[in-house]
């Protein structure tokens, strides 16, 4: 599904990712853990194609195609979804209208016909109930005045709606209490599928108790320095990043 080879990325002229390798197969859930400043968010933004995240070397092959030259919206249309750490507030655009615009943009890019407002609402309603997103929230301006938990639930609702092939969850656990975390994790687990890969980026092991990964990778100073199964997350929690980084050196 995703093959990252020797990836080098610079932001504002400063190299952040320094030869990152990662391979994720269909149906797999991988976790990337790392201390602050290790390049976790840079990786998620680079995969989503954010302007200013310059790939200076290596390749990102997704479903056999090199992504690096594709703009952000084209990647989304090809099934890449990034659940953001800080979803933005957009006053003046209702959530449901935003969903419709996004869905239809992706459909158009794939040569499919637009969905009308009624069909979109029907589609959203079913998925919103499971994530405890009330209909009233859909009528409000996107993320404006939403709590941290509501914003993250809305991110997962979008993931359910867009049905991506590759979902990247960037620090989805940040700012969530335990109930909200469970709700979000249940939402994510419900979307695990044989044709869908997930990359869960997190600082803490806590989230991985609920979204159990197939593989865990430790990111430090722009490189993956250790790989393992789900037990690696527990090892990290027990030893701390400093020790693991020292051991790997």
């Amino acid at each position: 599904m995703l093959e990252i080879k020797d990836l080098h990325v610079s932001v504002g002229g400063k190299e952040i990712l320094k030869g990152l390798n990662l391979s994720i197969g269909a149906g797999e859930v991988h976790a990337i853990m790392g201390p602050n400043g290790s390049g976790k968010s840079t990786l998620s933004y680079t995969l989503a194609g954010r302007v200013g995240y310059d790939v200076t070397g290596g390749s990102i092959i997704y479903k056999g195609e090199d992504l690096t030259a594709l703009p952000t919206d084209a990647r989304a249309a090809k099934g890449i979804f990034l659940a953001m750490q800080y979803p933005v507030e957009i006053p003046g655009v209702t959530t449901i209208n935003f969903f419709k615009t996004a869905l239809n943009s992706q459909r158009r890019a794939r040569g499919e016909s637009d969905l009308d407002a009624v069909s979109v609402l029907r589609l959203v309603r079913g998925k919103a109930a499971a994530l405890k997103v009330p209909e009233e929230m859909l009528k409000r301006a996107l993320n404006v005045g939403f709590s941290g938990g509501e914003k993250k639930r809305l991110e997962i609702l979008q993931m359910a709606l867009f049905e991506p092939s590759l979902a990247i969850l960037d620090e989805t656990d940040s700012g969530l209490d335990i109930d909200a975390l469970k709700l979000v994790a249940d939402g994510v687990n419900a979307l695990r599928a044989p044709d869908r890969a997930m990359l869960v980026i997190t600082h803490y092991q806590r989230l991985l108790n609920y979204i159990v990964p197939d593989r865990v990778h430790v990111l430090s100073a722009g490189r993956i320095i250790k790989d393992g199964g789900k037990e690696l997350a527990h090892e990290l929690e027990a030893k701390g990043y400093e020790q693991i980084i020292k051991d790997a050196a």
Partner: peptide, 14 residues
Amino acid sequence: VESLFYLGSRGIPE
């Protein structure tokens, strides 16, 4: 720019 990136990441052309 944050908003533009967010909308782009949802498939909305620039």
